[in-house]
Design a protein around this nucleic acid. Sequence first.
DNA 1: ATCATAAGCTAATTTGAATTAGCTGTCAAG
DNA 2: CTTGACAGCTAATTCAAATTAGCTTATGAT
Lengths: 207, 207
Amino acid sequence: MGGTKKKILDAALALFAERGYANVYVAQIADAVGIKAPSLYKHYKSKQEIFGAILAELKSSYDRQAAALRMNGNDAMADARMFSAASEEELVKTGMGLFTFFLHDDYARNCRRMMTVEQFRDPELAQLLSRQYADDPLAYQSAMFAYLGSTGALRQYDPDVMALQFYAPIHMLLSLCDRHPEREGEVTALLEKHIRQFSSIYAKEVR
Amino acid sequence: MGGTKKKILDAALALFAERGYANVYVAQIADAVGIKAPSLYKHYKSKQEIFGAILAELKSSYDRQAAALRMNGNDAMADARMFSAASEEELVKTGMGLFTFFLHDDYARNCRRMMTVEQFRDPELAQLLSRQYADDPLAYQSAMFAYLGSTGALRQYDPDVMALQFYAPIHMLLSLCDRHPEREGEVTALLEKHIRQFSSIYAKEVR
DNA sequence: ATCATAAGCTAATTTGAATTAGCTGTCAAG
DNA sequence: CTTGACAGCTAATTCAAATTAGCTTATGAT
């Protein structure tokens, strides 16, 4: 029992992410796995079924991760404590660490790209994309900023807007790097400046 | 001489934007135009050629528009003057006007969606998308903020970062609405709050 | 008037990719 | 040892979609 079934999903995801479902031929998936096209059908009934399996895994793996985040209660507050305790340096380091992780993690990256190119054909993918890369992060960070505001660690502004202003640049630069990996250097430099400036802008006035 | 040739491009663009090149059949394009598939070939040699023509028009129409913007000298300053003179109300009104224009203009919208779904298959589209929806707007607004900083109208921070913090939320919310038109209301409300908060955050301290 | 061209149609034709048929070797359970 | 499920292969088969052939009609120029 080779992990062929899993290898098929991985190969297919990578290909779907690069070219979109319709432009990928089952023969290419098979090639990538190291078998011939008809052998695929020993593992999945059809090309559609492969796509479906990818989708199912994508969803369950995200749910798993989301559950983990909420595990120790509402964890935005834990992050918030770190955020407020930490020096700007720490903050930059964690923020950018997350960015480069998401950027380079093959699985996350491929999921993101596949959702991007298939979003208008499959309402379910549209939902997932919005949830994973917009609504959930925004809600999480909004909670965090709300807490930091109430604490007095940051100035008190609408936390939804703060979350948007903090997160949207990250989101935009991530999309940009997905399109142009060669621009990573330039982009991370800008991202760092963003985080520093954000924290200085919203910092409680000291002077 | 009906404008059939043009109608074909329009219909094809709309379809490509919705489903992506490979999922659109020439018969569907023909249907949308009101003719039969083989008749398409009286106007274009192939499906690819239709795609090429769309691309060419997309590029030239953007260049035209960009040229128009630069016409009366460097126009970021004109905008900047307005930005500084205007009340927050005015600013909100113009900002949101632009957002809803881009959101609803069929041509812009379809181009954006087509570039989005084809970006990883065609490096040229990736370039265009980045230029039109990232680099150019950022450069423009950066110039504007630089000017406003030097003028004393706004606090002086890195203008590239200000541009990013102003524009990225707009960009992100636009993508969101492209995916979920029904969320337009909620999204424009957030956008408005963003613009107000941005201008208040970066306003010269008054107290 | 006539002819060339443009723009449409229906009925092939071609092509390319998914899927099915049917065979083979491996290996674990009985 | 042998049998059956598993996972692979090659060689069909099927099917859908792009493209071509060849006919028709309208129209504008000679």
